[in-house]
């Protein structure tokens, strides 16, 4: 059985695994990541700006990715953990965020008459979900549930690499493979049969910044956007981590020097 996504993020992991194992402490690290069952092809490692110790989200790419989400994915996929105000972190201005929110009607209420009512969304509102609940989502999608995408990059082995691979992995089934009714062939989906039809097609969106909307480009951008959506704290986290480890290195040196001094007359 092939290990789903085991080679993914290999570079990223190998660095830290070496460090951690070097410290001799991560006894169980090798055994830890569990493997999803089902056959799948190894996920190719895609280059993203946010990889590595100092990587940050490419804002322009993430903004384009948001556009892809808004115009394509949002028809079926909710992102209920995100609010419109969060888009400011992607470099959108307050006015732009207000304008984006205002194009969406959200339910509010009850009003003084006890009725629920629709109003334009405000920055503080959550992203509007396309379906009121899971049953409605399934009913509209032949029984398949389009998952919420808020943390999808953390919820799939392989993360953004997997999302990029999945979105570019559609093809005709190889000879000998019969698809079940309403299913589509995807090289990278576990089991290869996915209910979602190929969502991205050449030129499907018109990017404001003039970037050519190839499937590859859109997949890269939307994977960047989803990675940000899942881990909006990543940049602050890495920055703090680098500073903390520098601090600990100095403190460790000092502590060790003091230890040597104190112990010199015992040895």
């Amino acid at each position: 059985m092939s290990v789903f996504g085991n080679t993914v993020r290999a570079t990223f992991r190998a660095t830290f695994r070496a460090l951690a194992l070097g410290a001799g402490l991560l006894l169980g690290a090798g055994a830890a990541p569990a493997l999803a069952a089902g056959e799948a092809t190894a996920i190719p490692d895609h280059r993203f700006s946010f990889e590595g110790l100092f990587g940050t989200y490419d804002r322009a790419s993430a903004q384009r990715g948001f556009q892809v989400y808004k115009e394509v994915c949002a028809a079926c996929h909710a992102m209920k953990q995100l609010s419109y105000r969060n888009l400011r972190e992607l470099g959108l201005s307050d006015a732009e965020v207000r304008a984006i929110a205002a194009t969406v009607e959200v339910q509010d209420g009850p009003n003084d008459e006890g009725q629920m009512f629709e109003r334009p969304a405000r920055p503080s509102d959550r992203f509007r979900s396309p379906f009121p609940n899971e049953n409605a989502a399934r009913a509209a999608n032949n029984g398949a549930y389009p998952p919420d995408l808020s943390v999808i990059a953390k919820a799939r082995e392989g993360g953004a690499d997997y999302l990029h691979a999945l979105l570019t992995g559609y093809s005709d089934p190889p000879p000998g493979v019969t698809l079940m009714d309403g299913m589509n062939y995807n090289r990278y989906f576990p089991g290869h049969q996915i209910a979602m039809a190929q969502p991205l097609n050449e030129g499907q969106v018109t990017f404001h910044d003039g970037t050519n909307a190839t499937v590859e480009q859109m997949a890269h951008d939307v994977a960047t956007f989803l990675a940000w959506a899942a881990e909006p704290e990543m940049e602050e986290r890495k920055r703090m981590g680098v500073r903390l480890i520098m601090f600990l290195t100095i403190l460790g040196g000092l502590a060790y020097a003091v230890k040597r001094r104190i112990w010199q007359d015992v040895h």
């Binding site: 100095i250 403190l251 000092l254 502590a255 020097a257 003091v258 001094r261 104190i262 010199q264 007359d265």
Partner: peptide, 26 residues
């Protein structure tokens, strides 16, 4: 006797300084 105060030890001033710096850092 093991403490930091025994006189005549060449290393003493540096040790106190070291301890001070390490302590402040912590």
């Amino acid at each position: 006797q093991h403490g930091a105060t025994s006189p005549g030890d060449d290393g003493e001033p540096r040790r106190d300084f070291l301890k001070l710096v390490a302590g402040s850092f912590a």
